[in-house]
Amino acid sequence: MKILVCISQVPDTTTKISFTPDGKALNSAGVTFIINPYDELALTKALELKEAAGSGSVTAITVGDASTEPNIRKALAIGADDAVRIDAQPLDAFQVASLIAEYARDKGFDLIFTGRESIDFNGGQVGGMIAELLDWPSVNVINSIVFNGNKATIERDIDGGREVVELETPMVVSAQKELTEPRIPNMRGIMAARTKPLAVLAPSNNELLTEVNTLTLPPAKGGCKFVDPSNVQELVNLLHNEAKII
């Protein structure tokens, strides 16, 4: 089983988000960047699938500048066999998807794994775009995946429930939390990661279809109105008459 896992680097989940004064970028001073949590799950599941199949390889790929290397090394330490970094600033989902699809096109991957969304731009776009660029089927937000030869049985979330589907490789799937528990790199993994191959490739093109004009913070809340616990009726009145929500 030959698997490609797409890794994006995002601000740590505890980051207090702020933007540069021109509203064009994240204020990255003091921000720790991590592997997108869903991508960590995708990577772990990919390793489990390779192990279950008894053979194959797991390649981690990221589109990003040199600052992403510690995280791509971490992916190697967790267990990826090799890694690829496409040396471009990721600015648009189509740009990222095109670069990954072009890389993957003739390499014989059975499975491309993404996260359900990146926790910075939250678009959940890249996986579907890769699939369409390659004309492969895609299954989003999966909870479980089991292979029998080249046939996968997948359970995924749908609106108001769950669905079980079957399909054959190649395919693109996106990971969410229930899929597995993320692996933590151990000392041996960290040592091994130093010598595993990490290819840095120049971008084949850099076409952007969208552009972020301004980043803004949500408007500040007006402050909390406190209601005495002995007067719950007051809360109901406020929700009914003031907020007009019940």
């Binding site: 939250n122 579907g128 775009m129």
Partner: peptide, 23 residues
């Protein structure tokens, strides 16, 4: 932007070579 919408929008955008504004 439902589960189905999230699966479809990126694919439709690529087919139409359209910029996608999600969410």
């Amino acid at each position: 932007n439902t589960y189905s919408g999230k699966s479809l929008a990126p694919r439709v955008a690529v087919r139409l070579k359209a910029g996608l504004v999600p969410a």
